[in-house]
């Protein structure tokens, strides 16, 4: 076992899969020679050669379109969108093409590609680099959307994503890239793509989060226990499409109260979907409405005010208090 940051775990997962399976290809802007702007692909071109790990011209639609063509011919492309804010350029190739290729061809062609991309706020990046856009893909049938919250999951989920037979959007929160280290086995292992993870057990309140918000929620949960002796159960969703509603419902049946913490804007995203599904599956177990703690429905702000816009643990804690009071 080695201590790894999340970006090292991503690199290691790619390394393991490139080594295991000749059909795995890694490409995108600056991923080859430069090893990626976050060093996620560092050293891989030197190790596996320019045919398998390569720089592309600067064209996102081209990158994903190329990946689709390769995937339909049996390759396992892992394509990088340098920052998820630039995924709009590739929207048709992802949502219009990759997501529905299996359906349109009655299964004759499929696009088992992985789109890896850094995203998320709190890093004082320039404009348009920090949006949480997963909601767009939660709405897209045919795609999986996976968001790890720690180095161990990142590696195991990325390996599962590469081996999965459907297109996977794999989102890596920039704030988590280097902020935590964890034990990560050097060899290959998988973490299932559609199983949420209970990261803190509790009997009084179910908290559902993913990505960097898992850590914010955990911090608020500790504070809640300290201040009021109330025990929150925190669920790390890992996948926002599909959503593991069984794990959520099991928890809600025990706690009778739930809150979703999300970094993306409030409306029509993963949180909305989670709450709808809780209503569908567990409404008679609830003692009060399920709330969400999120930023407002405004454009992702300029760097100097992003920390006020993104919920912090104090705001999340106030959200817990409110859910418990209703």
């Amino acid at each position: 076992m080695a201590q790894m940051t999340m970006v090292q775990a991503v690199n290691n997962a790619l390394d393991v899969e490139l080594g295991r399976d000749k059909s795995v290809l890694v490409f995108g802007e600056d991923v080859g020679q430069n090893g990626g702007v976050f060093r996620a692909t560092d050293g891989l071109q030197a190790k596996y050669g320019k045919d398998r790990v390569f720089d592309t011209p600067l064209a996102e639609s081209g990158i994903i379109g190329l990946a689709n063509g390769l995937a339909m011919q049996g390759f396992r492309p892992v394509a990088e969108i340098q920052f998820f804010g630039f995924v709009f350029e590739a929207m048709d190739e992802i949502a219009g093409q990759a997501a529905r290729m299996r359906f349109r061809t009655n299964g004759r062609y499929t696009c088992p590609l992985v789109v890896r991309s850094p995203f998320g706020g709190g890093n004082k990046t320039p404009e348009m680099h920090a949006d949480s856009l997963e909601g767009l893909f939660v709405q897209t049938p045919g795609l999986r959307v996976v968001i790890p919250s720690n180095p161990y999951d990142a590696k195991g989920l990325l390996i599962s994503a590469i081996r999965d037979n459907d297109p996977v959007i794999f989102l890596e929160h920039m704030k988590l890239y280097r902020s935590l280290r964890a034990e990560v086995p050097e060899e290959a292992y998988t973490v299932p793509l559609d199983k949420a993870n209970v990261v803190r057990e509790g009997r009084d309140l179910t908290v559902i989060a993913y990505g960097a918000m898992v850590h914010t929620a955990l911090k608020a949960a500790e504070e809640l226990a300290k201040q009021r002796g109330v025990q929150a159960e925190v669920i790390d969703l890992r996948s926002v499409n599909p959503i593991d509603i069984e794990t959520i419902v099991t928890s809600v049946k025990k706690t009778h109260r739930a809150v979703v913490v999300q970094e993306a804007q409030r409306s029509a995203g993963a949180a909305a979907e989670i709450i709808a599904q809780i209503n569908e599956h567990a409404i008679y177990h609830l003692e009060g409405p399920v709330l969400r703690v999120t930023p407002p429905d405004t454009v992702y702000p300029f760097a100097q005010i992003e920390d006020e816009w993104i919920p912090d643990s104090a705001q999340v804690l106030r959200g817990f208090d409110k859910v418990l009071s209703l």
Binding site: E29, D30, Q33, N34, L58
Partner: peptide, 11 residues
């Protein structure tokens, strides 16, 4: 250059 990608790899 486009970040690290040289002109001859761009076109």
């Amino acid at each position: 250059y486009a970040i690290s990608v040289p002109f001859r790899r761009q076109t």
